[in-house]
């Protein structure tokens, strides 16, 4: 029995995972979510404290593989910006991130009645890495090649008339949605005076929280759980809240499997020792 358990076929685990993921999605349990005061609440409070009409820049430093975690964060922060009347500048260190999320941002902006070029703008992907951002720090228009994602000249976009430099006088906050490198180090290293917030995939949380006590990060949305917390704060439950039950169950399954694996391991070991 123990040996059978020790060599359990992976396919049974895959099946168990599918079951624990699908059932709560079909029939949600509706477990309550508490808000992380050190991370999510801080970010919410910071964005909330900005005066209406502040300019927030999104840096999409991720790609579609992080859709489930990042998309609810983007929507929740956009909802907050809508409630507060902030303006949005969309940029990205990852070309794949812009390609994937730009249509989704446009769709949500239409729902809010935001006018492109007035309430929000998307400058698209600009090649060149940190050099490009530094160039924008000296002259935003030249550094960004003077055109947005659709090739429209900045001179035709009213919102761009006030965006002449990438600095703390122009940008009130950068919110980076990140799942890898290049990411927030670009802002921490070259633009330390611009307030920075981060929406992070779960795998990146451990390397990000150290920037919270130092004030280099004003707040952090930690993974899908954080997105659900932000949805709760802006009072608009979305996909992250819906998926929390499934995530709870999958984490429980993994813990149960770890326990079962150890029981099988130590049981077999004991049996072998007795046999000797």
């Amino acid at each position: 029995m123990l040996e059978k358990l020790n060599n359990l076929d992976s396919r049974w685990m895959y099946l168990a995972l599918v079951i624990v993921l699908v059932i709560p999605i079909i029939k949600p349990i509706g477990m309550s979510i508490s808000v992380n005061k050190d991370l999510t609440q801080r970010m919410y409070d910071f964005i909330d404290s900005l005066p209406p009409g502040s300019l927030i820049m999104f840096d999409l430093a991720s790609n579609s593989s992080s859709d489930t975690e990042i998309t609810p964060m983007i929507y929740a922060v956009m909802e907050h910006m809508y409630q507060k009347g902030h303006k949005l500048l969309v940029a990205g260190q990852w070309s794949s991130g812009l390609a994937f999320w730009s249509p989704k941002i446009d769709e949500r902006a239409r729902e809010y009645g935001w006018v492109y070029g007035v309430d929000y703008v998307n400058i698209g992907y600009k090649a060149g890495g940190t050099s490009t951002w530094r160039a924008m720090g000296q002259d935003f228009w030249k550094g960004a090649m003077e055109v947005d994602i659709n090739g429209t000249p900045f001179s035709e976009l009213p919102i761009m008339q006030n965006i002449r430099k990438l600095d703390d006088k122009t940008i009130d906050c950068i919110v980076i949605f990140e799942s890898g490198s290049p990411g927030m180090e670009t802002w921490i290293t070259y633009f330390p005076t611009i307030p920075l917030c981060k929406g992070s995939v779960a795998a990146e949380i451990s390397s990000s929280v150290r920037y919270i006590p130092t004030g280099q990060l004003k707040g952090l949305i930690p993974g899908m759980r954080g997105a659900a917390e932000y949805e709760k704060l802006v009072n608009r439950p979305g996909i992250a809240t819906q998926l929390m039950d499934a995530q709870s169950m999958s984490h429980l399954l993994v813990v149960a499997l770890i326990a079962l694996g150890n029981i099988a391991y130590f049981g077999t070991k004991r049996k072998m020792a007795r046999g000797r």
């Binding site: 685990m13 895959y14 790609n63 579609s64 593989s65 794949s96 390609a99 994937f100 499997l257 391991y265």
Partner: peptide, 27 residues
């Protein structure tokens, strides 16, 4: 790209589940 990326990334959950059973041992 998004469906392929999402598929690749989702498969990690299955590997992780199986790996947690086989490798996470309090040796």
């Amino acid at each position: 790209i998004p469906p392929v990326n999402a598929t690749m990334y989702s498969m990690v959950a299955f590997y992780l589940t199986s790996a947690s059973y086989k490798a996470f041992r309090a040796r």
